[in-house]
């Protein structure tokens, strides 16, 4: 029997999950010590997220509706171009696209916003003590709220195209939790790295564009030649997108391997993010 790339990644993920459990158990006292700080600043977190939402839609006539309209318009344009011009021959292409789009834009929005979250709050951080992880967390939660609104767009597409809805659709919550943990980890890394090297912002901007094409959002993974597929499969977003499609379009609960890989990538990113952030956070203020 030949091992597939999924098998290997799943095996690595099992190791990561086991390591995480050990790390958490070993660090229980330290994690407990974090709790009072988080409890004190949870109001700030809520206030900042609601301010983000208010500011985003202030002075726009359509307000929150834009969160619904934007993915709908993208879907229309992309469907016109790809489904008709390239003749991919995918059943319900609009649904196929919009599912991937929603997952990808959540990850790209949360990380891109987080990138500048600490730098953008420099004036505050210089004058009051606030746990700094609050700021990337705020942007991730804000992106999560936007994502929930864009799910309304998905629902509209379902209704118009009369696509069958499976009960597995509720598992979307699971994949969103995976993607949220992954995004928060990546946000921690980016927001800390940009404090030391401002180039990270530009590099990441380029990377996000490349990332979109490396993730099967516009096209199905199967159209890629085998060797290329194996490289693309190292991209965590492949699994989050496929997971969402599996529960939304096929009505199939993703297998154990997919779940393990999703969790593995999310935890690995989160741990790297937390460690890197914790080690560097005291020096942020010297680079503002």
């Amino acid at each position: 029997m030949e091992l597939t790339i999924e098998d290997i990644l799943a095996a690595i993920s099992v190791v990561i999950i086991a390591a995480t459990i050990i790390l958490v158990v070993v660090n229980i006292p330290r994690l407990k010590a974090l709790w009072p700080g988080f409890k004190k600043y949870r109001h700030l977190l809520a206030t900042l997220v609601s301010r983000d939402i208010k500011v985003k839609y202030r002075r726009s006539v359509l307000g929150l509706l834009w969160s619904v309209l934007q993915p709908l318009f993208f879907m229309l344009i992309i469907t016109l171009v790809f489904a008709n011009v390239f003749k991919l021959g995918i059943r319900d292409y609009p649904v196929f696209y919009i599912t991937g789009f929603v997952v990808f834009s959540f990850v790209s929005e949360s990380t891109t916003l987080s990138l500048n979250s600490i730098l953008g709050n420099a004036s505050l951080i210089k004058k009051v003590y606030i746990p700094k992880y609050i700021f990337p967390l705020q942007k991730c939660l804000f992106a999560l709220v936007n994502m929930v609104f864009s799910l309304i767009a998905v629902a509209i597409v379902y209704i118009i195209l009369q696509v069958q809805v499976y009960p597995t659709v509720f598992l979307l919550v699971v994949v969103m939790a995976y993607a949220a943990v992954f995004s928060f980890g990546l946000s921690l890394i980016l927001s800390a790295a940009v404090m030391f090297f401002r180039d990270v912002a530009h590099l990441y901007g380029i990377w996000v564009t490349a990332w979109m094409y490396l993730t099967p959002i516009l096209y199905p993974l199967s159209i890629l030649p085998e060797p290329v597929q194996n490289i693309v499969k190292l991209n965590p977003l492949v699994y989050y997108v496929e997971y969402a499609r599996s529960v939304m379009i096929d009505g199939v609960i993703p297998d154990l391997n997919t779940n393990l890989i999703c969790i593995g990538f999310a935890l690995l990113t989160l741990i790297i993010g937390l460690v890197f952030f914790k080690r560097t956070q005291d020096r942020f203020i010297l680079h503002m």
Partner: peptide
């Protein structure tokens, strides 16, 4: 800390909104 007054203010928000925002910055509940 009264290090610099109004350092937690958002100038686009109203005085009322800023009271809650600045309170949250200092760790007080709504």
């Amino acid at each position: 800390p009264l290090i610099e007054l109004g350092s937690g203010f958002d100038f686009d928000l109203t005085a009322r909104e800023n009271v809650y925002l600045n309170g949250a910055v200092l760790g007080y509940s709504k």
